[in-house]
């Protein structure tokens, strides 16, 4: 499949009084046409820096990045008309304008012919379900509405490649679902999407491939199943049981990452990791603390894999 992004040995360093600080340190990856590619990592890991470089707003200090076959440093003008981006949050809008005016403004910047602007804006505002608020000033919009407006704005130039940097941050579940549906819809139309998010379920649901990034380096890259399988050695269990002495259980060192949730005294729901693969042995050991109602080995989620791979991040 055609590579739409090629990143080789990309670095971005900032000069500090104490020396160089690497926001990105020699990362390499490719993104294929039509993929939804997730960049996941903690705050400050380098996700946004990567996106800023690929959207031509920031220059790397070393390495090479090509977007749609063009170099991001020297051929930015060839890239800009074919990509677009959304940064999460409420910035990036003119509060005094209405959504319709805001869209006209960017239509002009993206060189959309005057006669085509009205129809395009209508379609895009319909797509993000803002048609009823098109004449409302943006400063009266909720976070979710602003995010949807950003999505509409980033589709003005019918981009081949979209960068979505935490697009669902701070949204309520309905707003977040609506945005996920839009992303899925865009992906089905063949638009390549680079997505960063802190919501693992969202990444699992949307991404074809994922890269874990920490400390400016890519630590793992692959499809969600591959990433989950990388943690297959973890023995994660979930159980529901009545417990005689909860303190004794909490003090026991055999259980890693023990999460206890009270259902109704003395019934508890437990999630834990142990160094034992045999369910029967685990069950037998756990029954020394109470009566087990239900126990099972849990499937590794993307969140489990993320926590495992990011465990050394402060």
């Amino acid at each position: 499949m055609e590579k739409i992004i090629e990143v080789k040995g990309l670095s971005r360093a900032y000069k500090l009084k104490t020396g160089l600080k690497y926001a990105l340190d020699d990362i390499s990856f490719d993104v294929k046409k039509g993929e939804v590619f997730g960049l996941l990592g903690p705050n400050g890991a380098g996700k946004t820096t990567t996106i800023k470089i690929l959207t031509t707003l920031l220059l790397p200090t070393a390495g090479e990045a090509r977007v749609l076959g063009y170099d991001v440093v020297s051929e930015s003008h060839m890239i800009r008309n074919r990509i677009n981006f959304v940064y999460g949050g409420e910035r990036g809008v003119y509060g005094r304008l209405t959504a319709k005016e805001y869209m006209h403004y960017f239509c002009t910047l993206y060189k959309i012919k005057n006669k085509d602007q009205a129809a395009l804006i209508k379609d895009l505002l319909n797509l993000v379900k803002l048609q009823d608020a098109e004449n409302q000033k943006i400063h009266t919009y909720s976070k979710g509405m602003i995010q949807r407006l950003h999505i509409a704005r980033c589709l003005i130039n019918d981009p081949e490649l979209l960068f979505l940097d935490e697009p669902t941050i701070g949204l309520d579940p309905i707003g977040a679902k609506l945005l996920r549906d839009i992303v899925r819809d865009l992906s089905s139309k063949g638009i390549t999407i680079i997505l960063t998010t802190h919501y693992m379920q969202e990444a699992d649901e949307l991404c074809d491939r994922i890269a874990f990034i920490k400390g400016g380096k890519i630590s793992l890259i692959g499809d969600p199943d591959f990433i989950k399988q990388s943690c297959n050695h973890l023995n994660l269990y979930e159980a529901t049981m009545s417990i005689y002495d909860i303190e004794k259980l909490k003090e026991n060192n055999s259980f890693n990452k023990l999460e206890i949730e009270v259902i109704k005294e003395p019934y508890y729901s437990l999630n834990f990791e142990v160094n034992e693969n045999d369910l029967e042995k685990v069950s037998a050991y756990l029954s020394t603390f109470g009566d087990i109602l239900k126990i099972s080995k849990r499937n590794i989620s993307l969140e489990d894999a993320y926590i495992y791979h990011m465990k050394d991040v402060g």
């Binding site: 959207t55 707003l57 800009r80 981006f85 990036g92 003119y94 002009t108 910047l109 993206y110 060189k111």
Partner: peptide
């Protein structure tokens, strides 16, 4: 919005 303006093809 400065970056949005600059990142446009204009």
């Amino acid at each position: 919005t400065l970056e949005l303006n600059i990142a446009s093809p204009t």
